[in-house]
């Protein structure tokens, strides 16, 4: 069957994974925990890498892995309902089988440029998903990194994902601050109100840190502007991209931005690398 029986597995052939746990984060975001049918992780990965999820006959789609590589027993994917594959996935139950292949792409440089540094995570909406794999990785190797600031915003409090982490787990860790914001005033919300880019400026953060960003393109655009105004350099800023990906292995030719393939050379890019590329994302 799924051809792990011989050495020459084609990279396009998925293997089976079972949905072990489903958590509804928001009205349109669900976090799926998947494992091998015989138990255990489908594959090992690095923070920021992606997995191609298959739901025949609907098709395939690429998602960032939201669980930390330090999580030994399963992979987690937080998936927003926005297309035909995600719609189908949202209809699945615990015990359903899907296809999975990966890991794909590069990763945030947790063992190089990030090590020993103060870190600033900036996320909007579902954009927290890829960053969560990094944050949890760092939390598990807390001594290797400096101070951690997490700025996370969503349209409404209901749209905040990974609530357990942002409200309970992370704020209670050493030298870790979580700053939450929502777009508009809302009953029952006594936290900060406003857009992420503005909040960043208000927080008056020092610039001696590495920044990791993920969120909707418009948020990223304004955050980058804001960061440069505060005095951050391009070499300090990392983000992660999502484009149409089919093969995941740098061959099918559709996720390129200039001469870079997001699925292979990305999805993580440093801002100075991005600025060398055409504005086509």
């Amino acid at each position: 069957m799924s051809c792990s029986c011989h050495g020459h597995v084609d990279p396009l052939v998925p293997k089976i994974a079972v949905i072990e746990h489903i958590r509804k984060d928001t009205p349109d975001v669900t976090t799926f925990r998947v494992v091998n049918p015989a138990g255990g992780k489908s594959f090992t990965s690095l923070p920021g890498q992606c997995a191609m999820i298959s739901v025949p006959p609907i098709g395939e789609a690429m998602f960032s892995i939201t669980s930390s590589p330090t999580e030994e027993n399963f992979l987690e994917l937080s998936i927003k309902k926005c297309g035909i594959v995600t719609e189908y996935l949202h209809g699945l139950e615990v015990g359903s089988e899907i296809g999975i292949r990966g890991p794909y792409g590069n990763n945030f440089p947790v063992n190089d440029e990030l090590k020993g540094k103060d870190l600033l995570f900036i996320a909007g909406g579902i954009g927290l998903a890829p960053l969560r794999s990094v944050i949890n990785y760092i939390m598990d190797k807390r001594d290797d990194y400096g101070k951690v600031d997490i700025v996370y915003g969503a349209r409404t409090p209901d749209d905040l994902v990974h609530k357990e982490d942002i409200f309970n787990n992370w704020p209670n860790r050493l030298a870790t601050n979580v700053f939450l914001t929502v777009d508009r005033e809302c009953e029952g919300w006594d936290g900060h109100v406003g857009f992420v880019p503005q909040y960043i400026k208000e927080l008056g953060l020092d610039t001696n840190k590495v920044v990791l960003i993920c969120g909707p393109p418009i948020m990223i655009k304004f955050v980058l502007q804001g960061l440069e105004e505060i005095g951050f350099k391009k070499e300090q800023i990392y983000t992660t991209f999502e484009l149409r990906m089919k093969c995941g292995v740098g061959k099918c030719g559709r996720c390129n931005i200039g001469d870079k393939y997001v699925c292979k050379d990305g999805p993580v890019f440093r801002l100075d690398e991005i600025q060398r590329l055409p504005d086509e994302y």
Partner: peptide, 16 residues
């Protein structure tokens, strides 16, 4: 064609 599949909505079989 590189993959055959069969699915009843819950169980999935893949064969390269």
């Amino acid at each position: 064609t590189y993959l055959k599949f069969e699915s009843d909505g819950k169980k999935l079989q893949l064969e390269s």
